[in-house]
Amino acid sequence: MIEIVATGPLNTVQDLGRPGYRNIGVTACGAMDTLALTIGNILVGNAPDAAGIEVQTFPFRVRFSDRGAFALTGADCRATLDGVPLPPWWMAQARPGQMLELSPPLKDARAYLSLAGGVDVAPVMGSRSTSLRGGFGGVDGRVLAAGDRIATGAAADGFLPKDGFGVVPPAVALKDVFPLAEGGALVIRALPAGEHDLFGVDAERFWSQQWKISARSDRTGYRLSGDPIHPTEVVEMRSHGVVPGVIQVPPAGEPIVQMSDANTAGGYPKIAGVIEADLWRLGQARIGSLLRFVPATHAEAKVVETALAAYIADVRKTARLVRQALAAMA
């Protein structure tokens, strides 16, 4: 059990999401950076579907009521446990009464707090993710508030090192696979979507310019600001299913990238769709930061996915090995 002592306004319980119900209009939700949540769960020995807390507003302070292991992944929030700094992407053990404090990150947008045993809230339609729009999942379908007490499930058996351990963050370990553009813009790979060619020469301007993530961006979607683009003709669009990563262009000409809380249906012309393996990086992009879209193919996306899966598998296996070896020496 932990108690939320202080929290910003938009922090929620999330797991890997609630896919499979888009056909009845239910948004998948889930962590914006599923990679960070996945690694957090590995570090504390949780199953991959365990829920954690997505922290995107600060300050965030929790007090541990019981002894328990936790992990912090994603954005480096210069976390401290009773004032002692913790490295990023790290698992540690808390004693009863200890206070964990997260400060606003200097880069990246969202941190994930994984608790051994996972956040114990009732799954709704197969997931513990909070659906703010639907008002269900997580803690009563709402954002976390000071005073909330969060229960955890039964922690898995197995040794966790007393001094904690962590991982080489994916931004470092996979830096060759997820490069930055010159000037620090995030390079996001995307496949041209249904109405791409309708944009004519504006399609080239979509790919060539840097887009800025506007302040009107959240878990639902990122509104991008830049030089507007317009289709050469107005087409009648019939409402159709969409997935996170779809880049739609409303009449004003500034694209919107749908994210984890995306509506299940869309009707604006869509110029491109972000490859799934780049969505976690987009989930860490901050308001005001710059993006460049790069056209990709399925084959290129597959290479990125494979590298990502290999990193996760490597962390899972090596973490288990290290825990077993340390247990044998303890």
């Binding site: 499979g20 888009r22 056909n23 409402s239």
Partner: peptide, 22 residues
Amino acid sequence: VAEIVPGMTNLLVILKETPDMP
């Protein structure tokens, strides 16, 4: 196939994995 989302005279098919040969 992971998920099928019928729309207005259209259908979104979501595959479990990125196909090698789209």
